[in-house]
């Protein structure tokens, strides 16, 4: 078997609302290999978190997975019973969210929470689990872990709390970690520490990581490959150098140009006119067509499928079978 840890194919997620069925994720496909960090970027509402939630089986009604397949090491996990999925989550898939307090129970000492996770998923004795928890806290860079293990979440600073959450996510030695904006609430100096940590753990343990963030800087630094999402679809996916330095899709190009960088000398930032459509008003054809500087007739009628272009896959009619850019 290959090194693919996570494989998502044609994922569709819908929300049933009073105004009808809204399609939040519409045919998303990607893979993540062992030891690989896939960055998922895109504007607010693009579907990054819903995609992550689908993978960990946390789409709650009125939402549901309406199509496609999610495989973990080849095994389908999108159609498991809630009970089975709960075991996959935690044991085989770890989670890190933006707000560490959503993952930590304020009433329990952090050590108890890590030990409980370890004991739920392994046969370690209480004593061995505690030793293991201290190792984990050491590994994520908590100073004096023998002492801090008995602290409550509120006794940790934001950055330290996020480390505890990472330790918790690692406790069961998962094959995959879904990290949704893990550093967004942190200051840059602390953010740098957390990203460095995540990268190191991923390399050393071979964990596959889906890293969801708004911050292209974090992606450039941490990710091996990047998926750019727009309106519930993947506009472009490929190696980080290609997608960040030489994006093909007009949206990805606009997005990269819109981001001020520390080395940019441009007087003006690239401006993508308008805003991403609401789920109730996704235009036919290419969802980006009303904002696209390169739009042509076909874009308004026919939806572009992701096709290989150079080292990436791009969903844009500018790069059709003829494989050439306009």
């Amino acid at each position: 078997m290959s090194d693919t840890v996570l494989s998502v194919r044609d994922l569709r997620v819908v929300f049933e609302t009073r105004r009808g069925t809204l399609t939040a994720i519409d045919g998303v496909s990607f893979d993540i290999a062992r030891g690989e960090i896939l960055g998922v970027v895109g504007e607010s509402g693009a579907g990054k978190s819903v995609t992550g939630s689908a993978v960990i089986g946390l789409i709650d009604p009125p939402g549901r997975i309406a199509g496609g397949e999610i495989r973990l090491r080849g095994e389908r996990i999108d159609n498991l019973t809630p009970e089975k999925m709960r075991r996959v989550r935690g044991r085989r898939i770890g989670m890190i969210f933006q707000d560490p307090l959503t993952s930590l129970d304020p009433l329990y000492r952090v050590g108890e929470q890590i030990v409980e996770t370890i004991r739920t998923h392994t046969d370690l004795s209480a004593k061995a689990a505690r030793a293991r928890a201290i190792d984990l806290l050491t590994e994520v860079g908590i100073p004096a872990p023998e002492r801090r293990i008995d602290g409550y979440p509120h006794e940790f600073s934001g950055g330290m709390r996020q480390r505890v959450v990472i330790a918790l996510a690692l406790a069961a030695e998962p094959e995959l970690i879904i990290a949704d904006e893990p550093t967004t609430a942190l200051d840059v100096s602390v953010q740098a520490q957390v990203i460095t940590l995540l990268k190191r753990l991923c390399r050393e343990r071979g964990t596959a990581v889906m890293l969801v963030t708004h911050d292209m800087g974090v992606i450039a630094e941490a990710a091996d490959r990047v998926a750019v999402m727009y309106s519930g679809r993947v506009a472009e996916i490929g190696p980080v150098e290609s997608v960040v330095r030489a994006p093909h899709h007009p949206y990805a190009r606009g997005l990269m140009g819109a981001i001020p960088t520390l080395s940019d000398t441009a007087e003006r930032l690239t401006q993508i006119p308008g805003a991403m459509p609401r789920l109730t008003a996704i235009p036919p054809g290419c969802a980006f067509n009303p904002r696209c500087p390169n739009v042509f007739g076909r874009c308004r009628a026919e939806r572009p499928e992701p096709l290989p272009v150079d080292r990436t896959r791009v969903a844009c009619h500018l790069y059709d079978e003829r494989g050439e850019a306009a």
């Binding site: 602390v190 953010q191 740098a192 460095t196 330095r245 520390l262």
Partner: peptide
Amino acid sequence: RMLLDAVPDLAHIGRARTPVSGEI
């Protein structure tokens, strides 16, 4: 200097940031 080193930036693909010690 530390702050500038810590900033994730588009231009720094794959670059490891200078580790910053401590927090505010």
